[in-house]
Design a protein around this nucleic acid. Structure first.
Lengths: 133, 133
DNA sequence: GTGGGATCTGGAGCGCGCTCCAGGTCAAGC
DNA sequence: GCTTGACCTGGAGCGCGCTCCAGATCCCAC
């Protein structure tokens, strides 16, 4: 009795991965995902491995990695274990980019909040003529 | 002797605002910036006020506000002082969005770093066969 | 007054990342 | 068997935010 590997329909995969059906097919088309196993009739059956990889893509995409770079990463994964150092380097660089982006965001958010504070002040100062009754 | 208000050429404004020349003109075209004062020959002369507004746009745009919403904000500004509460509300909502975005980023960055840690481990475990000399 | 760089205008084009569509096939319930 | 809905493929379309281009004008230095 071999271990039965779970498989998932496209609809289930949409549900579980958070990607749209079109995006799943798109990613497969452009080679971000290896060709997905098919059931007899040609319908896709995603594996747990596929789901894991999709989760990886979600992390990378969700942190702003461009598709071209995800593609590079996918190729490294495909090329086997002796690309691990390269993958690590790529992820570390990405992590640095994310960090920089967050720093930038924090900086600008601070300025937005200054503006908010300014408007709060302005609002407190001039309601003299606003309420009439 | 009236106070001479400074004005800036397009090139200077590019330099100071961080927006490209094309973007400056684009923003003006779509109404994100009020029509900029012109010198005799038709060349733009940006004012300190313009610069201030551009800085505002840079904050909003840089924190991911869509142009449509910046447009809404610009209209509120144009409509005068009794829109201050609305502007405040808009900025506060935006601030909340930025906050949510940062939370999302932090969460995903954590996962990316987990992957990095995983690869570091993998790298430490299998270099047995890698170095041969 | 002439050359060369900055600027002007209106409009077309582009890069990214999907998203949608048409026209057909597959699969499960009645 | 038939219906209905999920799924298939290849390719076109789109929304956003710029970016580029052509052809003309302006302005400053020499």
């Amino acid at each position: 009795m071999g271990v039965m590997t779970e498989t998932y329909s496209p609809a289930q995969t949409v549900e579980m991965s958070g990607f749209s059906l079109d995006t799943l097919r798109y990613y497969e088309r452009i080679g971000l995902i290896e060709p997905v196993r098919r059931a007899a009739g040609g319908h896709r059956r995603y594996s747990d491995d596929d789901l894991g990889w999709l989760d990886m893509l979600r992390c990378l995409r969700g942190t702003g990695m461009p598709i071209a770079q995800m593609h590079t990463f996918a190729e490294l994964v495909r090329d086997g274990d002796d690309t691990i150092a390269d993958r690590l380097a790529l992820l570390e660089e990405h992590d640095a980019n994310v960090e920089a982006e967050m720093t930038r965001l924090i900086e600008l958010q601070r300025k937005v909040r200054d503006k908010i504070a300014y408007y709060r002040g302005a609002l407190a100062e001039l309601p003299v003529e606003c309420v009439r009754d």
